[in-house]
């Protein structure tokens, strides 16, 4: 179309638009490196009543020669990769599509862009299946958190018990605030007044969904810190303090 332009400078913005994508790249890369290393490490994931969330549920079978984490991590990983919020985050920061609003991506392919209509991006549509899978994993994490209060000498509370409990709670907030969850509990309805319970659920999930980005980040830090805590205790670097 004449007189609209895709040439010229990257942007006419003069504020620090690059800060947010840069921070996202740094944090997600750091998490990616840490999580990969820990998933492949295959040890220091269990100590006392504590099990690292990267290894839960713990599947130990003869035929699997690699780290047991790989058997389950695909679920939470797929859940995050196809998450509507993380999609925004990595499309912007890693793919520069676009890097920020009113900032042109490096590759402006006039007339060729297909978004999420073609392979591989069309696979983002399976997000709700990862939501189901991640919910199963989450149930195990709650079981682990519960188990973390039962030591060899009976019921007790260690710092690790609290860490695993908070981790499960944060991941639950992340899952419940998911857009697919919001749709499934009631968003798909056109007439809320005929399903008052689903409407109430939808309102509740919608309220959490408004802060989905917050839950996405905080639960990401939570799960990494929970794993790190278990590792530090398992390697003897720190001692788990018993509170009760």
């Amino acid at each position: 179309m004449a007189n609209t332009t895709t040439e010229g400078p990257l942007t006419l913005r003069r504020d620090a638009w690059w800060v947010a994508p840069l921070l996202t790249v740094i944090v997600l890369t750091a998490f990616g490196i840490y999580a990969t290393w820990r998933a492949l490490e295959g040890r220091y994931y269990e100590v006392g009543p504590y099990l690292s969330p990267f290894y839960s549920p713990l599947i130990l079978v003869d035929w699997w020669k690699f780290s047991p984490a790989i058997l389950i991590l695909w679920a939470p990983l797929g859940f995050r990769v196809t998450c509507y919020y993380y999609r925004k985050a990595y499309y912007r920061s890693f793919f520069w599509s676009p890097p920020a609003c009113a900032v042109r991506g490096l590759k402006s392919r006039q007339g060729k862009y297909t978004g999420e209509t073609r392979f591989p991006y069309i696979l983002q549509n399976v997000h709700r299946y990862f939501f189901y899978a991640a919910t199963v994993v989450l149930a195990f994490l709650w079981y682990d958190a519960f188990k973390a209060f039962f030591f060899e000498d009976g019921f007790g509370v260690g710092v690790g018990s609290i860490v695993l409990l908070v981790n499960a709670a944060l991941l639950t907030m992340y899952s419940v605030s998911c857009h697919s969850c919001r749709h499934l509990v009631g968003g798909k309805l056109d007439i809320f007044s005929s399903c008052p319970t689903r409407y109430r659920l939808w309102r509740w999930v919608s309220a959490l969904n408004e802060h989905h980005m917050f839950w996405a980040w905080i639960s990401l830090f939570g799960v990494a810190l929970a794993d790190l805590y278990v590792r530090l205790v398992a390697t003897g670097t720190i001692i788990d303090v018993r509170l009760i």
Binding site: Y84, R87, C101, A102, E116
Partner: peptide, 8 residues
């Protein structure tokens, strides 16, 4: 499907 939900 073209929208990549980048929210601008």
């Amino acid at each position: 499907g073209f929208c990549n939900i980048t929210k601008c």
